[in-house]
């Protein structure tokens, strides 16, 4: 397998994960509704997702994408570390953005966050003991609200979203160029789009725990 193929795997899995984030974000905006309404609609939405075969298939692609993205990141970083030069005084940082050089570290923060996030909600929903709401759905909304009443967890989520924002700003523009978009005009548009997409989604996600923390405490 050559450098191009590894990069294409990173780009495809990464861009799929970016698209998934949008769907995840749109679904979660229900958390901003008034508490009772949010509880009903969010729980209904969660139970709809678990019962749908298409969603199940997409979720397998999602798990696979996360795993492949992480594994290939590790392989690429290991090869790159050996290939790159090391200097006694290194001022090469002046010519690139810090987040473009530290995608691995940002990615590691995000991976740790994903594990925590799965444990907080996904695991509880699938395997934990979870009560039913008055409409007969698993009451994930109450689990979410209870979790985000812990200030430290809100801070962890906000930090993770900051890491994700920088990861996406670099990742979207980099991934699309790996797939071969080279026209200067379109590349400029993609860079702007990537920046807006990354900031909008990550700020939106970060606001969810903050909103719940302040409205339910």
């Amino acid at each position: 397998m050559n450098t191009q193929i590894r990069k294409i795997i990173m780009a495809c899995t990464g861009l799929f994960l970016c698209f998934f984030l949008l769907i995840h974000f749109l679904g979660n905006t229900q958390l901003f509704l008034a508490p009772e309404e949010a509880r009903k609609s969010f729980n209904m939405y969660s139970s709809f997702l678990t019962g749908n075969i298409f969603v199940k298939l997409v979720s397998y692609v999602l798990y696979l994408s996360i795993i492949l993205h992480a594994i290939y990141a590790l392989i690429i970083s290991t090869i790159n570390r050996k290939a790159g030069g090391h200097y006694s005084t290194d001022n090469r940082g002046r010519s690139s953005k810090w987040y473009s050089r530290n995608m691995g570290i940002l990615g590691t923060i995000i991976l740790i966050f994903i594990v925590l996030h799965f444990q907080n909600f996904w695991y509880v929903y699938k395997f934990g003991s979870i009560g039913l709401d008055p409409w007969g759905h698993k009451d994930l909304y109450t689990v979410v609200v209870t979790a985000f009443q812990q200030g430290w967890l809100v801070i962890v989520y906000v930090i993770a979203m900051a890491a994700l924002a920088y990861h996406l700003i670099q990742g979207i523009s980099s991934g699309i160029r790996t797939l071969g978009l080279f026209h200067p005009k379109f590349v400029r548009w993609i860079n702007i789009f990537g920046m807006v997409y990354a900031i909008a989604i990550c700020v939106g996600f970060a606001l969810m725990p903050i909103y719940i923390y302040f409205t339910h405490n």
């Binding site: 290939a83 010519s95 953005k97 790996t178």
Partner: peptide, 27 residues
């Protein structure tokens, strides 16, 4: 190694060769 699109190469290149060449190579 692999190109990770940090774009540092274009900044230090004496000829200012654009990183879009790399995107073209990918294409």
């Amino acid at each position: 190694g692999h190109c990770s699109n940090t774009e540092a190469c274009e900044v230090e290149c004496p000829q200012g060769i654009s990183v879009l060449n790399i995107a073209r190579m990918n294409y």
